[in-house]
Design a protein around this nucleic acid. Structure first.
Lengths: 190, 190
DNA sequence: TTGACAAAACTACTATCATTAGCTTATAAT
DNA sequence: ATTATAAGCTAATGATAGTAGTTTTGTCAA
């Protein structure tokens, strides 16, 4: 075993993701991360561009993992079945990776091509699922935004205990997706 | 003019709201607030219970102002007209008061009756608007959660520049509310 | 095998911020 | 006028991010 920690960029980001998921996004500090990795805080600057850089890099990991999760869930499915699978996978990801999800809910760095691509792929999956309803062009974008808003809003409110009343959240989520699908059906009918 | 600043709790919270709205939620620090008020940071502890207490108190102001805003917008309206008015007022509030909105999107302090009441009144307005569609009991709660999720998700994504593509956001928002109403109509038909 | 180089880690330091403790003084009620 | 309270203050501590400069280690080529 070497005396040096032997970290690289990926290992640091991975450790940061674990820390954010277990201790919370707000508790992800360079000091805590350094302690977790058994190095001194300034050594982290060899791998990430400060706290902001760490958060940006974590966002990219978040886009990728969320995208992979959604792709896995929707493969081989279509229309309502695909939408339900997408929605459930989205919510499951946010619950299993609360810190990484928050990281991924930040806007991708406009100057970073990798970030743009990874974030774009998440959107593409939603667009692809909705394409089965005949949505194209602007209509596809508007509807994608609606679905994303509902999913994002729900998981954020859930994570923040924003729903006060103790009524089954699983059922609320199912009904929300169902409501979206009913509306979609009506909209594409006309 | 007195030598003493003569602040009280309300004035401090009000100043904090302005600071959060103009400089951003993350820039709301006790140091910045104290400077803005021309006092020293420790003096703030005469009015609020630290940074966390300030945020909790700001949340209460947020619930109240948001509730008043929504009530004003929906008074004298019913059904689809009321839902559109509510949604537009909700989004307008989040845009005009980005800091206060973030404060209000935190869960109300369970030990603070005032916070619970203020937050509850916001939910009550949404429930009341949806009551016109014959929703009662659990169904009303599920549907309220769906609408809140969509609204919250949209305004948060909008505030974080989360919608990458440069396509008219006003139109996206209108279509999202329309989609919700179409679904609602279908759901309550059966 | 050895030696040089780049990377990874370190120490030491500064600045900002939240927070506590304890002191001072303005103000308002008596 | 006196006094009690509350609003402000200074001073100090501890956590954190970040910078500068140094040491050390692993690797790779001579």
């Amino acid at each position: 075993m070497s005396l040096r920690a032997g970290l690289d960029h990926a290992a640091v980001i991975q450790a940061a993701a674990e820390l954010a998921d277990t201790k919370g996004w707000d508790s992800l500090t360079l000091a805590a991360l350094a302690e977790h990795l058994n190095i001194r805080a300034p050594s982290l600057y060899n791998h990430v561009a400060g706290l902001e850089g760490l958060r940006r890099d974590l966002a990219v990991l978040g886009y990728r993992e969320l995208g992979a999760c959604l792709a896995r869930a929707t493969i081989g499915k279509a229309r309502d079945e695909a939408v339900f699978a997408l929605a459930n996978a989205y919510r499951a990801f946010a619950r299993q990776h609360p810190g990484l999800y928050v990281a991924a809910s930040r806007a991708p760095d406009p100057t970073n091509q990798e970030a743009q691509t990874a974030a774009g792929e998440v959107v593409e999956i939603v667009v692809a699922v909705l394409a089965a309803y005949g949505l194209r062009g602007d209509a596809a974008i508007h509807t994608t935004r609606a679905l994303r808003s509902a999913l994002h809003g729900f998981v954020m409110l859930e994570a923040n205990a924003g729903f006060g009343i103790p009524l089954d959240l699983d059922e609320s989520f199912r009904q929300m997706v169902q409501l979206f699908l009913l509306g979609l059906q009506q909209q594409t009918h006309t």
